[in-house]
Design a protein around this nucleic acid. Sequence first.
RNA 1: GGGGCUGUAGCUCAGCUGGUUAGAGUGCCGGUCUGUCACACCGGAGGUCGCGGGUUCAAGUCCCGUCAGCCCCGCCA
Length: 583
Amino acid sequence: MRTHRCGALRATHAGQEVRLGGWVHRRRDLGGLIFLDLRDRDGIVQVTLGPDWTPPEVMERAAGVGAETVVLVKGVVALRPETARNRELPTGDVEVKAVDLAIAGRASTPAIPVARVKGEELPAEELRLLHRHLDLRRPELQRNLALRHRLLQRARATLSALDFYEIETPILTKPTPEGARDYLVPSRLHRGEFYALPQSPQLYKQILMIAGFDRYFQIARCFRDEDLRSDRQPEFTQIDLEASFVAPEDVYAVVEAVLTALWEEAGETVSGGFRRLSYREAMESYGTDKPDLRFGLAISDLSERFRGRGFDAFDSALASNGKIRAIRLPGGAVLSRKEVDALIAEGKAAGASGVATLKREGDRLSGPLAKLEGMTAELAELNDGDLLLAVAGPDSVALPSLGRVRTAAIARLKLQPREKHVFAWIEQFPLFERDPESGTLVFAHHPFTAPHPDDVPRLMAGELEQVRSLHYDVVYNGVELGSGSIRITDPELQRKVFELLGLSRDEAEARFGFLLRALEAGAPPHGGFAIGFDRVVMLLAGAESLRDVIAFPKTTAARALFEGAPTAVDPQEIAELGLKVLP
RNA sequence: GGGGCUGUAGCUCAGCUGGUUAGAGUGCCGGUCUGUCACACCGGAGGUCGCGGGUUCAAGUCCCGUCAGCCCCGCCA
């Protein structure tokens, strides 16, 4: 039916007779001459119709085609006249002189434009989702999904070459009361019972390791019934992997190979390797567990330097086991009072009771900290033009506050990154964290995460806060790309953890008995990782929203506008499931 | 669950302190036009101002409610 894609034609094709199929992107009808921009997934080429080479009835037909109509064109590729070439188009040196044009699919006037006027804003997101078939025709989204395809293939090829088997796991699974809210699926055959859609294939991949498959991966769809954000969809895709007889180092090597391959596939060069930071180092130096290491600006401890200098807020913080933490902004002295106030507000929003500042301009120090006894530029280690922002208090407050100040300052000062891509492993996360509401200790990750071997005695002794885990994250330019861990393989340790979670032996058996039985059948040491694939595509495509790298995304209220899901169903179907909808 | 922003022609937007017949660009329809590429030019049609209620002599504009989209907090082991 066709010989080439529209976007593929170049000067080398000149003289060839071609048949094309595509969508009419735009029409320019000059009366005697008609130009059609014909578009397919590869790009746009100009089709030219004129009385010298196009039969009159074809001219007439072409004069009537509207935007987005699908046409089949037969013609000859010709070099354009020298003065009529279009440098902005890859196909701009040529045009197709049409001898025939058939209308294959006439389009009604598009509800939203595919070809936009230069400078025109995109249609409202609601309309783009409602008319997704049209929005997806836009070259940007075509490009994003083409990239997504290539990244998927590259991930598969890379893992397959590393001896990983791609194995599918169920979509209808067992509900898990912990963690995110499950999407539930009622069972017709078993009235009153429910499946859940998987939040991740976590337990299945562990069972696969216990079953001896050694290395598994899956491009896995995951479902979580929680409120959404611009970087969160109710269903999303992970590159999920798990391997046996591994230490964290072995998992790191695999994940690094995959991520490096993906960046390469997108045309980026990754160098400098993956940094390593413990959770503690990340928090102490950057105030976050996902630091953007493209910038320096580490947090420093000024407790001793600023102790006992007549600043009450500092001394009282130190007296109650707090620290004075600070960040130096080179060139920060240029910030206006208003801009500095905005940074202080960031710190306060994260819980700091105050953010004290010190500015150096020439030999002059200014700001609230300038009046500390014995304050000098040397004491504060400030260079000319620097701004110091300090927070005193317990680390649990001071560090995250300065982390937010740091991020805001980088944006405010429009600092140039020292490197383009910085990947880092964050290791040795605590196994437990304090629930801010109840104050009780809860699992920081899922309950299958192995404790750090050195800390198992502490775990058994109930010194939970001190217990580190074998959980690790990959962070890229301040964005968390994924996480993983070495898993618990000792059934008794796993039982102990369920107990710490507050599950009775019976409850643990009812919920996770299948895992415990598997562990008792001889489990190899194993661990794995999951890469948030949508987020990776978004970063590599330069997209601003996950919705721009997913063909059919949901709205922030988890609706599918195009097809209209969710929707009410026939009461009879509901009755068949043994359910009743409450008003 | 809470907060914020937005909703006016098919699309993108303007519409002042409440005041005559709600505008522009683009698209659409008709016409002229042989080198355009956001073609140009002439003419025309096109409106439940998201929806419901209220205040007022008078509401696109003010108030209350509601729906939808987006952003943020909570939430996402």
